[in-house]
Design a protein around this nucleic acid. Structure first.
Lengths: 328, 328
DNA sequence: ATGAAAGCGCTAACAT
DNA sequence: ATGTTAGCGCTTTCAT
């Protein structure tokens, strides 16, 4: 029978250590110098009782809950990678003493208002914003510090951490040219996805660089499974087409594997790397891969939020992480 | 400049509605009859001020935080599906007025103790348990209700919700036989993974049924990319081999696609369905797929925890969800 | 059907 | 360097 012992309070610790209750608090918060001897006695008592400060009381009094709200997007089929963000964020937050409270995108702006007004969250992390996102407004109104992962069109007061998608666009074009390609086929419905700012920025990068290098760019909105075929059809003799997409790589990869190779004289698949590609095939070794730096982005986002939370008068920042080629 | 208005309190609401503070509280908790007129005035005031009860104060006083702790496993490469669980759990929890606090498996037993002692969580949801898991002990000690998703070897006091893996084993054997297979090749290192109870239960199901039906079972611990080849080598003329694995389907699928087809006269791939397979290829239509019922399991787990939380003296239950064949 | 008041366990200002 | 004390905003008992 699990007897639910009442949790010990700082009062209990104080009694056991022979000090006042406030001294226990000061030992914990470190907001006042404490003699070595007293500190030791208090810490002993804490250990002996297995004491943890009550979170409700601490939050009520200090207005600091130690909780960060994380708004996650609806997991769609393509999202083998989402959990990488979430897991990394949770881990990194713990390093700084924060816990992560999930808010689903489904709750939308109201969800933000709720966690803000009830005082559960000290700060907010927003993922996968649209170009103009309804969730930014309540985040702003709240006055709470927040960081968006994914750069929205406008970001008046919050910090932003994201991959430098414009640079990604330039890198892909550059690589395509280096690899003797005459043409870049962009799959994954880049047209329709213009709502997402990352795609828009990526395309901007592609266009700038393509003009520069004289590379033809084709937006392909057709079925992913037929991308390799379509690429083949539009590739003239003695020419080569590069294939790239921010989403849908797995399906294209799959389709190309079915036709024999991922990379040949006529086609070069370039991939945005991710967990969903790992170990999928020895063939993958031939595919140039860009690291989308998801772990780094997650960690930076947490660090940035912690900076906003802990630095008086800190101003928001935009941090763009440079994508890197994965070698080997 | 985001002026951080101090959030309104129940005192403010009371003043505006011309009632006492406690009346506001009673309107909110519903723990005392309130006249229609008063209730209306209070609700008006609440709406007018955009009042939300302070979570810290409520938790401190009532010992109910409205938060459920969710211990998630480390996201490994294979986990396109983990986020399905997490997202569904968060959504379902909200339906009952609870929020989800993430605890990473990395924090282990200490993580449990921490969220329990600080009083942030009213209940716990544990994912991906080992056969004997260090996290069950502190969950038990805590006296908090908890539900494990994934059946551990021993589960003395907590509830369990999981797929019926034993039945899955029987279903796979049955289907293999129906499809004229003489042999079942189990990939994904089922030997090594014996630490996980789901695999053990699955194998038990397979063995029972295979004996019954006279089907040969082979445990294959080799590289996933070579599974189709190995299957080919061990298939005698005029025989057929069924391929199945609880993990690693994507890699095998990929390798089989590269050799031409997912299903042919000599080999039949059977898949545990998931987001990582969706839309991956038209070829997939030929592959029999079992629905692992992840959404249903997530929802049931939350519902079970809510039952434990809200029903006085509720006893834990084991719920096994029957896997289903996906048609079409 | 409503109000007054106690107190949950902390933090931090005000003592000494 | 330590102790005393006043709340934070609720829920709930005791009153009427």
């Amino acid at each position: 029978m699990p007897i639910r012992r009442k949790a010990p309070t700082s009062q209990d610790v104080a009694r056991l250590a022979g000090v006042s209750q406030s001294t226990v608090s000061y030992v914990l918060t470190g907001s006042r110098p404490i003699s070595e001897a007293t500190r030791a006695r208090v810490e002993d008592a804490i250990a002996k009782l297995g004491y943890h400060p009550n979170s409700g009381a601490r939050t009520l009094r200090s207005r600091r809950s130690g909780v960060i709200g994380l708004m996650v997007p609806e997991a769609d089929a393509d999202d083998g990678v989402l959990m990488t963000f979430v897991g990394t964020i949770a881990r990194e937050a713990r390093r700084f003493g924060y816990d992560i409270l999930l808010v689903t995108a489904q709750e939308g702006a109201d969800g933000i208002r709720r966690v803000v007004r009830t005082g559960v969250c000290e700060g907010l992390l927003l993922m996968e914003l649209d170009r103009i996102d309804e969730r930014v407004a309540p985040a702003l109104e709240s006055g709470l510090p927040f960081v968006t992962i994914g750069k929205p069109e406008e970001f008046p007061q919050g910090s932003v951490v994201d991959l430098d998608f414009e640079m990604l666009g330039r890198m892909v074009v550059e690589r395509a040219v280096e690899e003797q390609c005459d043409r870049l086929l962009l799959f994954g419905a880049p047209g329709r996805k213009r709502a997402r700012n990352d795609v828009a920025r990526f395309l901007a990068g592609v266009e700038t660089m393509a003009e520069d290098q004289g590379l033809e760019v084709i937006l392909d909105a057709g079925a992913l499974a037929e991308v390799p075929d379509r690429a083949l059809r539009l590739t003239l003799p003695n020419q080569r087409t590069a294939l790239f997409g921010i989403t849908g790589v797995r399906q294209v990869l799959f389709a190309m594997a079915a036709t024999g190779a991922l990379v040949d004289d006529t086609r070069l698949l370039i991939a945005l790397s991710g967990a969903d590609l790992l170990d999928v095939s020895p063939l993958l070794a031939a595919v140039p891969q860009v690291d989308p730096c998801r772990v780094e982005i997650s960690e930076l986002a947490v660090q940035e939020l912690v900076r906003l939370l802990r630095t008086e008068g800190a101003t928001p920042r935009i941090t763009l992480v440079e994508p890197r080629w994965l070698e080997g």
